[in-house]
Computed example of a mutant assay.
Amino acid sequence: MPTTMLQGKCENIPMPDNSVDAVISTFALCSVDDPERAMSEIMRVLRPGCAVHFVEHIAAPQRTFIHALQRLLAPMSRRFNHGCDPLADTQRHFITAGFWLEDLQRREFSGIPMISGRAVCPKQRPQS
């Protein structure tokens, strides 16, 4: 299957509207500078009914040891780990942008919570 890998920022994808069949994101959406803009760009380039296939780490539930540790490490992580925000709320960003989540799974890896699944671009998009 022919594929194209682009180098650039997710907040400004150099592709035409409705031109992409799938987006794959693995541990990347935590590092975008503007998550809302990134989700808007992903939705713009995806064809209706197509999806983002993702695996992402997320913030642990509040008032847990892991969440407190993520909060403590967040400033250093953002500065020294390519902008990675250990408190990312990727699920909320997908939903706010208008994606439908399918096959959402929650897991932990060494105590770090993660989600995986598909965020589907709706066939009828909201008017902006």
Rank of each mutant, 00 (worst) to 15 (best):
41 E>D: 05
36 E>V: 08
101 L>V: 11
76 M>C: 09
10 C>M: 07
116 S>V: 00
20 V>K: 07
93 H>L: 05
102 E>M: 07
40 S>Y: 05
16 P>S: 03
34 D>A: 11
45 V>H: 08
74 A>T: 11
82 H>K: 07
80 F>S: 11
44 R>D: 12
93 H>V: 12
77 S>H: 10
105 Q>F: 11
116 S>R: 06
61 P>F: 11
106 R>D: 06
36 E>G: 03
30 C>I: 04
13 I>E: 01
39 M>H: 05
42 I>N: 01
115 I>G: 00
36 E>F: 02
63 R>W: 04
66 I>L: 02
114 M>A: 13
87 L>W: 10
5 M>C: 05
115 I>E: 00
13 I>A: 05
13 I>Y: 00
128 S>Y: 06
9 K>I: 07
110 S>P: 00
24 I>N: 13
115 I>M: 01
39 M>T: 01
72 L>A: 12
8 G>Q: 02
113 P>D: 11
87 L>I: 10
112 I>A: 09
53 H>E: 13
22 A>W: 02
73 L>I: 14
87 L>H: 06
37 R>Q: 08
95 I>E: 15
85 D>T: 01
2 P>F: 10
20 V>Q: 10
19 S>P: 02
69 L>V: 10
111 G>T: 05
66 I>D: 02
30 C>H: 03
25 S>Y: 01
80 F>L: 09
47 R>N: 06
81 N>G: 00
89 D>L: 09
60 A>K: 03
46 L>C: 07
37 R>W: 01
